[in-house]
Amino acid sequence: MSAAAPGGAAALGLDAGSTTLKAVAIDAAGRILARRVEPSHPRIGEQAERLLAALRAEVGGEPPVGATGYGRKRVAAGRALTEITCHARGAFALAGRPGVLLDMGGQDTKVIRVGPGGEVQDFAMNDKCAAGTGRFLEVILARLHVPLAEVAEQAARAARPVTVSSTCTVFAESEVISLLASGEPLEGIVKGLHAALASRTAAMVRGAGEGELLMSGGVALNAAMVAALAEALGRPVRVLPEPQLAGALGAALAVLGRSG
């Protein structure tokens, strides 16, 4: 996947998301040659240019740029597409087959039915609220002083999940503080948070019908969330390799006119 190709870079892809900026360089076969991931800066245009310049310096040449994500309009790109289309294309390329893609990012959770050509057959997203997204976990875990690297271990240690009833980021924060104050164990709360979010997400996934469940986005790096989803859905969740890069990869493939 990351081996350098003799023909050099054929395209660059940039995914300017709400929480992180992701950029990749790919060769003509769609293999990722180089990547960059950084937390999003308010000056998206400048940050994107810097990331793309770094990739160009690494892979050489002036390959065309495809852009996606909320910041795509701030980027000088040959092609700009929504992250829904790009995640589908990127996931299709990474998985090599169609399926139901769950992308959990910073402020969006998307469920996309990816067709046999990498196309979007149907999609659903969370409503105008970040409750069911990565941002929810980020805020609450920061409040609990649990670093991401320790989340899976904490959740696995829990004897039982503590029920967290609210998945509103603001209300859940106060609910969690109240649970801690009443002596509930931290591990159980961490597990309960994941179970609450998984239950909310599972409803969206079920609506997309059958098919292999693929997962992309930054939240896919959180093993506790993947486990909670598999448990809530009663079906395996296949995390794509380098799940954060699926959108950027899709954008790069799109500028080459390829679906996967």
Partner: peptide, 28 residues
């Protein structure tokens, strides 16, 4: 598409237009 017929405060323009754009892109 979630919105409102006359109160713009119930319309999140950026995510809403993004959904509409993704919908149109899905026609190929």
């Amino acid at each position: 598409l979630d919105a409102d017929h006359s109160d713009p405060r119930a319309w999140a323009a950026e995510p809403g237009e993004n959904r509409l754009t993704a919908f149109m892109e899905s026609f190929g």
